[in-house]
């Protein structure tokens, strides 16, 4: 069951439900920060101890030291870099397509009643499709090349951005829009100064969720039918019971998820300073 392991291993995915874009990072004293590292380090030490003493079977799970050595090997051989780059490209392309579609549809649906009536019902229906279940269909449609993987990622990324951006646009107070009209702002100026910035907080929540789903979709896509990428590396290692390689792969997924999450958090802090 590599798939479920991989899914659980990505923090971005685990954070999907978190919906507070503005929770300010509290300034922590350095000592406090240090304290927060104690338990993770202790856990890794415990893991190493269990492996060294033979409590933890080497075939079930490699020791941290072994994982680190393997990681170094994979980096030096260039395998890890190559596979990570391939995975990143897939996520980047799929997310870009999905996010653009989600945003565009949300703007059209949010700004016109006809647009909403046309777009929202099918979106609400498609949203409930288990999109991982579509993998099989995608493989029939698109073969086993890059297309089904990118399509799966794009599909997953579309909905959170669509729903949140639409919610953000709907959430803008009519009174605020009216005030802008009373200032004699044109339609385009109202979009630029009221609608877009007003919907931004909710859009950023959607962005974070979309990125999380994009990573999950990548893992699913790469584990099922792939000849390259991190998922392929993990799947391939499974056949040879190389638990160290599997752990390295999962760790890289996890780090990439964390990194994109950090980027969005940074954007939120920059763009939403007014909510402080």
């Amino acid at each position: 069951m590599d798939t479920t392991t991989a899914v659980a291993g990505v923090p971005a995915g685990a954070r999907l439900q978190e919906a507070s874009p503005t929770r300010r990072r509290r300034r922590r004293a350095p000592l406090h920060l240090l304290r927060r590292w104690v338990s993770p380090v202790a856990l890794v030490a415990l893991w190493q101890l269990a492996s060294s003493t033979g409590v933890l079977d080497e075939r079930k799970l490699a020791s941290p030291a072994q994982v680190a050595a393997t990681a170094l090997d994979l980096v030096q051989a260039g395998t890890l870099g190559t596979q990570t780059l391939i995975s990143l490209q897939r996520v980047g392309l799929g997310f870009a397509i999905g996010a653009s579609i989600g945003l565009a549809l949300a703007v059209v649906a949010g700004l016109s009643r006809i647009g909403e009536d046309a777009i929202d019902p099918p979106m609400q229906m498609l949203r409930t499709l288990p999109h991982f279940g579509l993998v099989t269909l995608f493989i029939i449609w698109f073969g086993i090349g890059e297309t089904p993987k990118v399509a799966l990622i794009a599909l997953g990324a579309t909905f959170p951005l669509y729903l949140n951006t639409l919610g953000g646009i709907r959430g803008i107070e009519r009174k605020t829009l009216e005030a802008a009209k009373a200032l004699h702002l044109t339609w385009a100026q109202r979009i630029r100064h009221v609608v877009i910035p007003g919907a931004l907080p909710q859009t950023l929540v959607g962005l974070r969720q979309s990125l999380g789903i994009a990573w999950l979709s990548l893992i699913v896509a790469e584990t099922i039918a792939s000849q390259s990428g991190l998922g392929y590396m993990i799947n391939h290692a499974k056949d040879f019971l190389q638990t160290d390689v599997i752990v390295v792969g999962l760790a890289v997924y996890s780090l990439l998820g964390l990194a994109t999450d950090a980027v969005v958090r940074y954007l939120e802090r920059k763009a939403l300073a007014w909510r402080s």
Binding site: K175, A179, A180, A182, P197
Partner: peptide, 13 residues
């Protein structure tokens, strides 16, 4: 020029 009961400012500006 209009001022309403609520300030109706753009909070993001």
């Amino acid at each position: 020029g209009v001022a309403f009961q609520e300030p109706r400012l753009l909070n993001w500006r």
